[in-house]
Design a protein around this nucleic acid. Sequence first.
DNA 1: TTGCTTTTAAGGGATTACCCCGAATTTTTT
DNA 2: AAAAAATTCGGGGTAATCCCTTAAAAGCAA
Lengths: 216, 216
Amino acid sequence: MTKILIADDHAMFADGIASILEAEDSLEVVSRCLDGPTALNFLESNKVDIVLLDVNLPGMSGIDVCKEITEKHKSTKVLAISMFNEESFVTEILNNGAMGYILKNTGRDELLKAINTILGGQSYFSDDVTQTIMKGLMRARTASKQTQKQLPKISKREKEVLQLIVKEFTTQEIANELFISLKTVESHRSNLLAKLNARNSAGLVRIAMENGLIER
Amino acid sequence: MTKILIADDHAMFADGIASILEAEDSLEVVSRCLDGPTALNFLESNKVDIVLLDVNLPGMSGIDVCKEITEKHKSTKVLAISMFNEESFVTEILNNGAMGYILKNTGRDELLKAINTILGGQSYFSDDVTQTIMKGLMRARTASKQTQKQLPKISKREKEVLQLIVKEFTTQEIANELFISLKTVESHRSNLLAKLNARNSAGLVRIAMENGLIER
DNA sequence: TTGCTTTTAAGGGATTACCCCGAATTTTTT
DNA sequence: AAAAAATTCGGGGTAATCCCTTAAAAGCAA
């Protein structure tokens, strides 16, 4: 028997979900909470398989609730439910441990499918939500492409030196690795600092990582 | 009139696409190429709006072809077409400038929809492909969560110092910022090196960035 | 409260990174 | 062929980093 906890401040909506779920023999709604703290409190003393969590709870945000649930109760999964197909909500709650995100206009069949998918260890998203994420992903991708373009070009040798710096090699070790003088390595690093507009090696590492200049 | 270039080594498949597209008044297939270099050569002297590119071309990979197209011809879009719904293929070609990815079992309507979406400046993916990407995204997310857990705990002060190191502050500047002695800052850094198992500041920056210890 | 651990703080001394200069050779671009 | 960029190396100096040790203050457990 799968134990389910519903955390939603809209009583009517929570009722609707509960009636859908209780028609299923394998599912049992063990509690319905109207806010985050109540839900967390219930979880302290009861084992629950999956929490249907409203992202936009009043008071304590659903995102914080989700974080606490997944940190304290490793075996409990969270399916985020929201009225809003907002990229920021989706990414935020996914970053805090939710395994799925569906909208409140989701029908009976899809709700059950989402629950079963997540119980099986996989993630689930509504089609609309998936589209939203993918759009954001592509935006981020093309945006990072653009910032990469305005990088001054790094020569092959400089790139090698940079990668070894990121790998925590000392100047002497880089020199040995590339069979060049210590002074040459310093020269390359100096040029990198100027080209990438960094003040020290820390900046070089940061810029290298931000622009995917490592391990290619 | 939208000018289209098809780059696919399977002649029969290219023919099929071409026949679909030429039934549309607004589309014109200006060339069909069986390999990458031929396509790139054609683009040198002809303006094309969109390239339907097979990911798995013989010889020069479709990924490299895509990279060169999007670098040299900014206004030309690329729609990747492939037999395989493989995450590595999808992410690779997206990282190299493709605006969409569809499978070869895609029907007429979806093909046209994909082309029009991309021409409109948006990205397009088959549902199957979207699922694949989302799965990979969730895997990466949960994986990074796990590696974060096995970090030794960093004290509040150490975290402040670490964040300033990432921001390229010198030791003296960190001391001024936090109103502590230069020697104290060095002490914190030294402890960070031990705790995070790093050899120098470059390692600290790398670990901080890999584990999202920055700007929180 | 006492004892233990962690955090925060700091100094001495050795090492390394960084900077400014210059300069020769090779490769790439024009 | 000429110009520009990349790769190579050095001297000498300052500042930053790193290692080791010490110690007060804060947090925590018995």
